[in-house]
Amino acid sequence: MKGARLDMPRWGMVIDLDKCTACQACVVACQVENNVAFMGPSEAQRGRAIFWMKLAAFPEGKFPESKVRFMPMPCMHCDDPPCAKVCPVDATNITPDGIVRQIFSRCIGCRYCTTACPYTRRYFNWYKPEWPGESSMALNPDVSVRPKGVVEKCTLCHHRLQNAREKAISEKRPLAPGEYIPACVESCPPKAMYFGDLDDPNSEVAQLSRSSRAFRLLEELGTKPKVIYLREGERSGVNRS
C-alpha cells in the first residue's frame, strides 16, 4: 500500500554514467568510511583487495573506433537478492527499507553468497586486516572492523542511516531528505551520484529512475536492483534527465 511509504522509504541510488569521470573518489571514500582493509603489494596483485564500491572498466571495439566504458559498481541492493536466499545463517538479509545488509559477526564464511551474487559485489576476508603503525587511528568508530574469514560488502553506509535516524528521533521529527546519504554519493566530485527514497515520487532518484536513459544491470535475472544507471547522453544535445 502506498500510504505506508511515508514511514518506510525504499532507499536507492542513481548513477549518471554521462557525468562519471572515472575518478574513483567514491571508491576511496567508501574504503575510508567503512574501514575497508587495504592490501600490500603481494595480496593486491593476487586480486585480494576489497572494494565495496568498484570502478569497472570495459574496453570495447577496435582502434580507431575503440572506447572504454566505466561503471562504478556498489552492491545493487536488489529487492530480490540472490545472496540472502542462500545464506544459511541469515547473516545477509534485506531490511524493510530495502537495504541488503551484512551482519559480519553472524557470517560463518561459507561464501555461498559470493557465488550467488551475479554482480560479484561480495568479498571474502582472506586475511586478518592489518593497520600498521598509526593507520588504525583513522578508523571510523561507527563501523566494525571485520575479522578474517567473513564476507563483506556495501551496506549503503547503513550506520549513517542509524545515526541520522537517531538524531531525527531525538529531535522528534521525521528524517529529512538528504540527511542520510552514503559516503560514495557524498564524495562524488562531478555529482554523478544521487541517493534517496525510490518510493517517494517527488524524490530526485525516483524521477531520474523514470528517465529514458535509465537501466539496471542484469535486469533479466529478476533481481530488481535498486542501483539504477543512466546511460550516456547525446553529443551537443539537450541535457535530458
Binding site: 576511496v28 571514500a29 603503525g133 598509526e134 587511528m137 555529482k191
Partner: peptide, 16 residues
C-alpha cells in the same frame, strides 16, 4: 567534492 587523492588524505596523515 574532493578527488580520490583528497579522500586518502588520512592515509597520509597516519601513514606508518
Amino acid at each position: 567534492g574532493v578527488c580520490p587523492r583528497g579522500q586518502a588524505l588520512l592515509q597520509w596523515l597516519y601513514h606508518p
